[in-house]
Design a binder for these strands. Sequence first.
DNA 1: CCAAAATTGGACCCGCAAGTCCAGAAATCA
DNA 2: TGATTTCTGGACTTGCGGGTCCAATTTTGG
Lengths: 219, 219
Amino acid sequence: MLSNGALRENHPIGHRGYPGPVGPKTLTQKGLATRQRIVEGAAAEIRERGVAETTLDHVRARTGTSKSQLFHYFPDGKEQLLLEVARHEADRVLSDQQPQLGDLTSWPAWQAWRDRVVDRYLRQGMDCPLSGVIAQLGRSTPGAQAVVSELMRQWQGEIAAGIRHMQGLGEIVPALDADRSAAALLAGIQGGVMVMLATGRIGHLEAALDVGIEGLRRR
Amino acid sequence: MLSNGALRENHPIGHRGYPGPVGPKTLTQKGLATRQRIVEGAAAEIRERGVAETTLDHVRARTGTSKSQLFHYFPDGKEQLLLEVARHEADRVLSDQQPQLGDLTSWPAWQAWRDRVVDRYLRQGMDCPLSGVIAQLGRSTPGAQAVVSELMRQWQGEIAAGIRHMQGLGEIVPALDADRSAAALLAGIQGGVMVMLATGRIGHLEAALDVGIEGLRRR
DNA sequence: CCAAAATTGGACCCGCAAGTCCAGAAATCA
DNA sequence: TGATTTCTGGACTTGCGGGTCCAATTTTGG
């Protein structure tokens, strides 16, 4: 996903076309690696101890860097770093569901995806780095909002594509509104995860997925 | 809900049987009022400017109190106050849905409840004091977890009761698992709210409610 | 190999917000 | 009323964490 062969290209650093102020104009090989290390280290640190408890000093210690490097690569400071971490984690959310999410072409495939999602969040346990980070820098921040909106858009799009495919196979009635059903299912997943984070129980996530998929199946 | 007639009873202050360290053993009339004022002021302040940006000094200013009073009523400091605010907000979540939530006895009633929920969160806008507070003091905190668990339990219970009532009327097939369906619907609502908080769009909440209720209705 | 630019280290600053303290005012109760 | 407890005000301390600075060092490109 990363590893863009040619180095020292004069490209702004924010990947995937996100705009925004992002520091030095060019980066050497070493600089790029350091920057990457900082983002991943920060993400890991946040996953372990939570956003609120993670300080720049923790990140510095874990990544073996210094304050000046942090601000060299992220001139806007903590906020910018957190935003970068949010993007990093948002990428993970979707890629962790592949290839199942991109292949909703039969009922067993849907089940496999459902299991994958449940497993992912079971494994992740009681911490959601993304939601934590987003909450921290405020939902109203345009950057944070953009990251979440884009994630939701893609996620919902993949589910809707799966629904349409099943409609093509005649397994789901054509009258059903794929986008609306996908939105509802996605909401169920989000809520299931949220309840799990807050209470430690995964039952709601399973219920949301199972009931949601059953709802599609019925015709 | 409050206003417990007899004053100066030797009861611990935490209402509704929540345990935990809660400060002075007894409170006079005035003290009780001040304490109440602090919690409500803190809740309001948090609703307006967010948890992360709310300091004890803001609370102090808004409630016309002093630092010493804050620590007099909440010896464990900010954490204790936040927990109290969380309880306060959790109460509001359910009471704001009444009487509709407690009267899911016909399809129009379900629709009225659905509208009430959508309206409540539209009105509330892009801030969720409860989720903010919970995120702040960490989901793992036993106190926070207890508050959310209890809220979810009650909420789901009311929905499930509504489903059972409709089953009694023959409007929903008896085979349907009321608790599981209620869990799924609740998850959808939670996720819909979450998406709204993050993206500003209410479509997911509406979709979750509508699709969820339609799923009950079909038989 | 040299100049320029990128990278690194870490000491330092500063403001803020949580929490402490104690003395004085007000309420309670005998 | 007077003794006792609760309540209130606000000045003070303290630690922490984000952010700045600059000089040293490495890397890059010619």
